[in-house]
Amino acid sequence: MNIFRILGDISHLISILILIHAVSTTKSAQGISLKTQAAYVVVFVSRYLDLFFRYVSLYNTLMKLFFIVSSIYVVFLLNRYKKNSEKTNDIFPVWYLFGGAFVFALIFNYEFSIVEILWSFSLWLESVAIIPQLVVLQRTGEAQLLTTHYIFALGLYRALYIPNWIYRYYTEGRMDKIAVISGILQTIVYSDFFYIYYKKVVKNLKFKLP
C-alpha cells in the first residue's frame, strides 16, 4: 500500500467520525442528507459482498466492516434526531442516481455476474451519492463548519485515490478502469465544493491567525 491510498482511507475514516461526532453532539440531523447517507449504506453493502468469499488482508476486512457498520449507524442516528416538523431541504430525486448507477453497472463491468455488477454499481453510485448532500448545503445556505469538514474529508478520500492509481499503474502495471473513471467522476462532482471550501474555510482560518 502506498501513502496516497493510506491517506485516502484515513481521510474516509475521519470523515465518518466527524459526521457521527457532529450529529451526536448537536443531537440534530439538520443539514445532513439522509438520502446521501442511505445511498452510502447501499454502496458499502453492495461493494463488500466479497467479505464472504475473498480475503485480502486483516486491514481490508476491518475497514470494510467499519464502513458497513458505521454507515448503518449514521442512518440510525439521523432517523433518531430527525424532526418531522422541520422543513426538509433533502429534495433531490435520489432514484435517478440509483437508476443511472445501475445502467452504468450493466454496461461497464468486468464480468456479467451479480457480484461484479453490484461491485460496479457501488462505484458509480458512490461517485454521485454526495449530490443530495450538496443540494441540502446549497438550499440551507449556511452550513455548520463540521458538516463542511465532513464533506471535504469525504471528497479528499477519492481524490487521494487518483495518485494512488497512478502510482499503482507505474509500480504494478495495474489499472482498474472502472474504479479510475468513476473515481475521477466523483472528484469532479466535488470540485465546485472544494473550491468553495478553499475560499471559505482555508482562507478564513488563515485570516484569523495572529
Binding site: H12, D50, V56, N60, Y161
Partner: peptide, 10 residues
C-alpha cells in the same frame, strides 16, 4: 488473475 479477482481497494 483477472481484473474482477483483483478488487483489493476500498
Amino acid at each position: 488473475e483477472s481484473e474482477a479477482d483483483a478488487h483489493d481497494e476500498l
